[in-house]
């Protein structure tokens, strides 16, 4: 893209160009948030909307501090996180097992593959009413929904990745007279690992989505999603913005964590 970038950078002052690139992108990176903040503040000062619709940045910050020190924030956070973790572990472990069954056993694939593909066509949230009737709207129903949400992505990627072990490696296993277990341990699992990791990453994203969804749709209980509902019911936009910010930060933390885990697991990979 150098052609286009060059055209754009022609007008910039030379002193700016001489700064180290990391510093430049650091400076530019905070420009937009600051600008948005300024815009927001200006809109509040100009009374674009009444304060209960558009609270000022200061009001939101104040609300956040109040939640942190005096409110139920930590309780809500830990409730959401533990709900998500339980569901994610349940869903991804069973998803891994089912995906391996589909990927490693031809009979398993022929028997269960079509059913799984049909199941996957149904939108995730369509299961909410069913699960709430089967497991209730309380903790069990919520965890079941989170588990269901992380099941499918884990299965799909594990299945596909174990199926895609290249023929030369299967041949190598035959030449080294590997048994079934050796093949799984030394070739199928590590070979499928990049795909499995992709599946687990997307399962993590879905689990977080489903946690918030379960908290919005099912019975009222401590949790970040519950606070969003509370904000809507009481018309407290500042509370909702605080909750959304927390959701963003936690989502970011998860994706960083997943990237870190991926690098650790795939150290052997050339990339």
């Amino acid at each position: 893209m150098s052609g286009i970038t060059n055209v754009q950078s022609r007008g910039r002052p030379a002193a700016w160009q001489r700064l180290p690139p990391a510093l430049r992108s650091g400076v530019l990176g905070v420009v937009t948030p600051l600008a948005l903040l300024g815009l927001w503040q200006a809109a509040c000062a100009a009374h674009v909307a009444p304060p209960h619709i558009l609270p000022s940045p200061a009001a939101v910050a104040e609300r956040f501090q109040m939640e942190l020190t005096g409110g139920t924030f930590w309780l809500d956070l830990s409730a959401s996180l533990s709900r998500m973790l339980e569901g994610f572990v349940l869903g991804s472990v069973s998803g891994l097992a089912f995906g391996l069954l589909l990927g490693l056993s031809q009979l398993g694939e022929r028997l269960c593959g079509p059913v799984f593909l049909a199941y996957r066509q149904v939108a995730l949230f369509a299961w909410v009413p069913l699960l709430s009737m089967w497991f209730g709207g309380g903790e069990a129903g919520k965890v079941a929904f989170v588990a269901l949400s992380s099941f499918a992505p884990t299965v799909v990627n594990t299945w596909r990745a174990t199926r895609a072990i290249p023929a030369p490696l299967r041949e190598l296993a035959a030449v080294l007279t590997f048994g079934r277990l050796d093949y799984i341990r030394l070739i199928a699992l590590p070979g499928a690992l990049p795909g499995i990791v992709i599946g687990l990453r997307s399962a993590l994203i879905y689990a977080w989505l489903a946690t918030v969804g379960a908290e919005l749709f099912l019975d009222i209980a401590p949790g970040i999603g519950g606070r969003l509902n509370e904000g809507r019911d009481k018309f407290e936009v500042d509370l909702m913005l605080v909750a959304l910010a927390v959701l963003a930060v936690i989502g970011l933390a998860f994706s960083q964590l997943a990237a870190f885990g991926e690098r650790r697991l795939l150290r052997w990979s050339p990339r």
């Binding site: 948030p33 919005l216 809507r232």
Partner: peptide, 21 residues
Amino acid sequence: VLLDPCFLLLAQVPPLAWIPL
């Protein structure tokens, strides 16, 4: 450099969480 950080942060919020707001 200008927009990616903000966008990525917003993208982390599950879409349906915006519904109440």
